[in-house]
Simulated scan of single mutants.
Amino acid sequence: MLDLRIGHGYDVHAFTGGDHVMVCGVRIPYSRGVRAHSDGDVGLHALCDALLGAAGMPDIGQLFPDDAPQFSGADSRVLLQQVMNRLAEASLSPIHADITLVAEAPKMKAHVAEMRQVLSGDLGLPRERVNVKATTTERLGALGREEGLAAHAVVLLAPSEGKC
């Protein structure tokens, strides 16, 4: 029997003062930043939760609590690396990742190729196994009013090579 595991993650952050947002490990210049304990990278936070969920592990809020000083301003790529280390210890590896970014602004299209490249490296996957796409809410709700941005992630995990 194949031991494939699927996980879904979601994250949202409100805008606040600043001059950029971090999304999928890419710094995007913008007239605002996000309110967050770490760097507020919604793409990576959703991805971490999807990976952890597929592995049956605690979510990022439990592993990296927002009231823990050591995670204040944390680089989400470092958090992703810690998640990947946990997966390796459990003999699990991602085989596909799909992320949907939801925001009216900033526009993400020009950054998607770089995001895919960053994620491909961080996940140890060929680029064709990492997808990133962006959409809007057609101006509906808080995201439509440009109060913040969000991301959904879906991943597929399998036992690492040599494991059944």
Score class of each variant (00 low, 15 high):
Thr136Met: 11
Ser120Leu: 05
Leu125His: 05
Ala14Glu: 05
Leu44Tyr: 03
Val21Lys: 04
Pro69Asn: 10
Leu63Gly: 04
Asp41Ser: 15
Val23Ala: 09
Ile60Trp: 00
Ser72Arg: 14
Val102Arg: 03
Pro29Gln: 12
Val23Phe: 05
Thr100Tyr: 05
Leu149Gln: 04
Asp59Met: 12
Pro65Ala: 15
Gly40Gln: 06
His20Glu: 12
Ala103Gln: 05
Tyr10Leu: 11
Pro58Met: 13
Ile60Arg: 08
Thr100Pro: 01
Leu125Val: 07
Ala105Cys: 01
Leu80Thr: 05
Glu128Trp: 13
Lys133Val: 06
Val154Asn: 07
Glu161Ala: 12
Met1Ile: 13
Ile28Trp: 05
Pro106Gln: 14
Pro58Cys: 14
Ala90Arg: 14
Leu125Gly: 06
Glu161Thr: 08
Gly141Glu: 08
Val26Leu: 06
Glu146Asn: 15
Gly25Gln: 01
Lys109Glu: 15
Asn131Glu: 10
Asp41Leu: 12
Gln117Lys: 12
Val154Trp: 08
Gly43Phe: 01
Glu89Trp: 12
Ser93Val: 09
Thr135Asp: 12
Gly148Cys: 06
Ala50Tyr: 01
Met84Asn: 07
Ser160Pro: 04
Glu114Thr: 07
Arg139Glu: 13
Leu140Ile: 13
Asp11His: 10
Cys48Glu: 08
Leu123His: 03
Cys164Ala: 12
Gly40Met: 06
Ala90His: 10
Ile99Tyr: 01
Val42Leu: 04
Arg32Cys: 13
Leu2Val: 09
Ala55Pro: 02
Asp66Asn: 15
Pro69Thr: 12
Lys163Phe: 13
Gly33Lys: 08
Thr100Leu: 13
Leu51Ala: 03
Leu80Met: 09
Phe71Glu: 10
Glu138Gly: 15
Gly40Arg: 06
Arg32Gly: 08
Val78Pro: 02
Asp59Arg: 13
Val155His: 06
Ala68Thr: 06
Gln81Ser: 14
Gly61His: 15
Leu52Phe: 00
Val112Ala: 09
Arg32Asp: 09
His152Glu: 14
Asp3Cys: 09
Leu125Glu: 04
Gln62Tyr: 04
Thr136Phe: 09
Gly144Phe: 01
Ser72Leu: 13
Asp19Leu: 14
Gly141Leu: 08
Arg127Cys: 09
Phe71Pro: 04
Leu80Ala: 11
Ile99Val: 14
Ile99Lys: 06
Ile95Val: 14
Leu140Pro: 02
Ala50His: 04
His13Ser: 05
Ala88Ile: 01
Asp75Asn: 15
His37Leu: 00
Asp66Met: 11
Ala55Phe: 00
Ile99Gly: 02
Asp11Gly: 03
His96Met: 12
Gly25Arg: 03
Ser160Leu: 14
Thr100Met: 13
Gly33Arg: 10
Ser93Ile: 05
Ala68Phe: 02
Val12Gly: 02
Leu101Val: 03
Glu104Lys: 12
Glu161Gln: 08
Leu140Trp: 10
Leu92Thr: 01
Gly7Ala: 05
Ala55Ile: 00
